[in-house]
């Protein structure tokens, strides 16, 4: 009997295709459709509302008469009053702040580690295990782990601050204080992902011929100058991939925020994905949530497209 038929390959990918379609493809394609409708809490009724869901979002970005201050992005922290009237804007705002913090703690820290490793190869094995290991953990597990470690007064981190005599940090509500919540979550996600960027940057640094570094050293450059003037500019293709991954990652983050806020993100820990889920499934407003998803997807698409276009346009570096 002949086992291999012309349709065999399709049969083999069918299970994956079914799951992918059910979980990702169909919902993604349905989003624009939902965004033009209004649902009730039972999700049974779909009413056509046109662009009403999008119109509802508009006031969040328009300065009201007599508003206390200019509601532009990247101001942190903000007043409670401001947040309450602009809940989506504040989630988006938090998300952008989170993006910049993760660029620092994930990409930046990963680059820093890679630079250390490139100066002393023996560190690589150790760093790779040390910083890559968190990547294997589920983010839910990581979240629970840190929630325990950060519990005020009794957690590992507050106790440590107690030991070295910083009383204010011993009682600090790391995850419940608007001043530290986002920062804390960013540092945790840096702990999870820095190893990933370490590996990417290390691979990039290894591709740079050793003679270039040596030539710069003989030319009189200090190790720091060698890094910033020779190695870092030559890493630009890797850097640009890392930044892209970090941007998309920040706007897809969900697990850590959800777990660390006990499934009830506050105004100061809401980011776009958590906000969408809350609107869609806790408030039953699937249409409004879909409209937000559409807008954010469009923003990310534009940013990514510009970034890729600029990367492609530059001349290739030859070693």
């Amino acid at each position: 009997m002949k086992l291999y038929k012309s349709y065999t390959p399709y049969l083999l990918i069918l299970p994956a295709l079914v799951i992918y379609s059910a979980m990702i493809l169909i919902p993604a394609m349905a989003t624009p459709y939902y965004s033009l409708h209004h649902t009730d809490k039972s999700y049974k009724k779909l009413d056509w509302v046109g662009f009403d869901n999008y119109k509802k979002l508009a006031p969040e970005f328009i300065k009201e008469e007599g508003a206390p201050s200019d509601p532009t992005f990247i101001r942190f922290p903000r007043t409670d009053e401001e947040i309450s009237v602009r809940s989506f804007a504040s989630a988006l705002n938090n998300n952008v702040v989170y993006l910049f913090l993760t660029l620092l703690f994930e990409v930046g820290f990963g680059l820093f580690l890679a630079a250390l490793v490139s100066r002393d190869g023996r560190l690589y094995g150790m760093f790779r295990v040390l910083f890559f290991a968190p990547m294997i953990l589920s983010l839910v597990v990581v979240g629970i782990l840190f929630k325990v470690m950060l519990r005020p007064e009794i957690g590992l981190v507050p106790q440590f601050f107690g030991l070295i005599g910083i009383e204010s940090l011993r009682t600090q509500q790391w995850l419940a204080d608007p001043n530290t919540a986002l920062l804390t979550i960013s540092i945790i996600s840096g702990w999870v992902y820095a190893g990933f960027y370490l590996v990417l940057f290390s691979a990039g640094l290894k591709r740079i011929p050793k003679e270039l570094v040596e030539a710069a050293m003989v030319d009189g450059a200090t190790p720091r100058q060698v890094f910033w003037r020779i190695q870092f500019p030559l890493l630009r293709d890797v850097t640009s991939v890392c930044i892209l991954l970090c941007i998309t990652g920040a706007f897809k983050a969900y697990d850590l925020f959800w777990v660390l806020s006990n499934s009830k993100p506050d105004n100061f820990t809401h980011i776009v994905p958590t906000y969408i889920v809350e609107k869609a499934f806790n408030h039953g407003d699937l249409g409004y949530a879909s409209a937000i998803a559409m807008i954010v997807t469009t923003i990310i698409f534009i940013v990514t497209a510009i970034h890729l276009w600029r990367t492609r346009k530059r001349e290739k570096l030859q070693f």
């Binding site: 040596e214 030539a215 050293m217």
Partner: peptide, 18 residues
């Protein structure tokens, strides 16, 4: 090396590509 006041020419030229 930076403080030795020597200059070196490499087989691969080692010009900074950027």
């Amino acid at each position: 090396p930076k403080d030795r006041d020597v200059a070196m020419v490499f087989q691969s030229y080692a010009l900074y590509p950027h």
